[in-house]
Design a protein around this nucleic acid. Structure first.
Lengths: 364, 364
DNA sequence: ACCCGCAGGTATATCGATTAACCAACGTCG
DNA sequence: CGACGTTGGTTAATCGATATACCTGCGGGT
């Protein structure tokens, strides 16, 4: 019974390839038509609810289909209708050493919740950079593999909307304030509100030296949040203790945090652009011998589930990534000609106060 | 120029649906054939390297294809060849409140690395439970949407291999020791080795009361690791301080940890079945006023990137999820008839010692 | 009695690529 | 000189479902 282990390096064994021709094969529309005693056209109409079919035959056909366990072939339907019921999500990930930001897990959860019930599939791809991402869309469209795409991390001068419009592919752009247009943005409004709330919270706690760790300058939300941060401080007659841009990697988070904490006038609070980095920052602070939040307060952004379990629990700005994902899916489905309820994405980013923020230390 | 915001709640606007018929449409094989002055059959053969075509015409055809930006239509090819070049990954996630375990991010990264270069796509689905997962495979196969599937989290009496064999769908099963058979398992050998190493490490540090937090009993690896844990202790003439089963949720991790730490003879070390839970456990311990690792040591499993950034950095058993993912992809591709190098998955799970494990506290 | 309209289906072309079968030149050899 | 193998293609059937155009009764109006 023991299967010989195929150890020959190089090429794969020709042996245990799955036998696709085995069995009676899956039923086709013809089989169903025969079983129901009608033509294939009638079966198609019964299943799709098109054409003029008597209720009796419709039921007969559906019964036969269920009996045989038949579903219309996706490739055949896609070929005929030029619709694949597949949506692409391309995730850019800087290096292949790092995993994917948990942020995307949340997003995918939100997307799937709306796509799956409507028979849509999510085609996931990882690419190293923006150039590869664009090339990938070109290929996916050229091959007719997808009906639409979810673009993430809007950039200030994003080449993708123009590309996808040229390709004629429906798409939505996450993190862009632009609501209309060929590639509508999706996201909670008032981008800066969360940051402003975080700053207000820190000010109320007595913090005066607050530093901001920003994401890559080319991202749209980076600018919005940074501006909100600076404005909120300005309104209180203060200036940022420091603002540092990073490339969104964990390494950068640690480096920048160490740098900020080594400043002559050490900030008493750090605001991060996402929870992953906030976690790294919190770790770096603790490793430097500082207590969070007694010595330094930390605020994240995204409100990932993870933050609830750390010690201390992470205060973070909730931007409801899951809900945004669901809204993105609905918007995109609508643009694909699907009949779906409109997604009203109300609300704004809100600070969730937990344990990583506390009163500013007494003296400087 | 401003697009009127569609606010009508309920049904989607019929208005701004993407215009698919716009433009000249994507080129087909006919266009390429015409451009190269040959028949469509020749184009097909040139692209696929089949048939007998002179080198000159082949180049002419490829040039024409490149010129027009043509790629063969995936649906058409799928219909004709009964191959979609698409692999399914179905992730079970207990509740929709929680996100997806970062473990899967790693896995996806590994899969994608092998799939993408070969023109394969990854179709991702999230389902609430095992029943839905099975139903989903049935549907995906009935619709002819996929060529294969990656099954995760092997169970001790897993219904999926039989199902997929009946459906005739190539598949691999992650976390199963069964190497051959219709649905081969993929994973590092010597499942227990990592746990044994962890126990040895803790024993060397002087720990004598070590507790084990196990995953759900129905998972294959749960039993393997638990046995390894108990054996390793037995060899040292010890017995587990406690063994608790959980459902793999963060809540359970916290609850169980609190429970264990409240034991009359408090364990000095905790071993967790994955990093997510270890993080929760570590947080719970710290929140209970204990220092890690001074008062209690913590070991995780998976060695997720996250663990490197926490304070203290998490000691964890590395099972190279990414590499396993890559191997799974290769094994599956081979079963799909693809010509790929065989995946030799050598090595075994190894403990990575960081900061969350330390000498046992002096006295009990 | 005849024509019309309509309900309820059916026949067939089509989507874009693949592939088995076939065919036209062109030496080549007995 | 004619049968024949080769080379380098082409023709046409096919994958499974959809949609347009087309039938075929049948009841009703005149």
């Amino acid at each position: 019974m023991k299967v010989r282990r195929e150890d020959r390096p190089g090429e794969s064994a020709p042996g245990p390839v799955e036998e696709r021709s085995a069995g009676p094969g899956r039923p086709t529309i013809k089989a169903v038509a025969a079983a129901a005693g009608v033509s294939t056209a009638t079966v198609s109409q019964a299943v799709n609810g098109t054409g003029r079919i008597s209720e009796a035959t419709r039921r007969r056909v559906l019964a036969a289909a269920a009996e045989l366990g038949w579903s219309p072939s996706a490739p055949a339907t896609a070929l005929r209708r030029a619709r694949t019921r597949t949506i692409a999500l391309v995730v850019r990930r800087p290096t292949d050493v790092l995993g994917v930001d948990p942020h995307f897990s949340e997003l995918i959860t939100g997307l799937e919740g709306e796509l799956a019930p409507r028979g849509y599939g999510l085609l996931l791809h990882l690419v190293p950079g923006l150039a590869e991402e664009s090339a990938l869309y070109e290929r996916l469209v050229a091959e007719g593999r997808i009906d639409g795409a979810v673009l993430t991390e809007a950039r200030s001068d994003d080449p993708r909307p123009a590309l996808l419009q040229r390709l004629g592919l429906p798409a939505v752009l996450l993190g862009s304030p632009e609501r209309g247009g060929p590639v509508p943005g999706v996201g909670l409004g008032q981008q800066g509100a969360g940051v402003r709330e975080a700053v207000a919270h820190l000010l109320a706690l007595g913090h005066r030296r607050i530093a901001y760790v920003a994401g890559p300058a080319e991202l749209v939300h980076t600018g919005a949040r940074r501006t909100a941060f600076e404005q909120a401080l300005a309104e209180a007659g203060l200036r940022p203790a420091a603002v540092r841009h990073t490339d969104f990697t964990e390494e950068a988070a640690v480096t920048v945090t160490e740098e900020l904490l080594a400043l002559p006038d050490r900030p008493t609070a750090l605001v991060f652009p996402n929870d992953s980095m906030a976690v790294c920052g919190m770790g770096a602070a603790q490793r430097a011998g500082l207590r969070v939040p007694a010595d330094v307060s930390v605020v994240g952004y995204d409100n990932l589930p993870l933050g609830r379990w750390l010690h201390p629990r992470l205060s973070s700005v909730d931007q409801q990534v899951q809900r945004v994902g669901a809204a993105a899916a609905l918007t995109l489905l609508a643009r694909c000609g699907e009949h779906v309820p409109t997604a009203l994405l109300e609300g704004r980013p809100r600070l969730v106060v937990r344990e990583s923020t506390g009163p500013a230390p007494a003296a400087s």
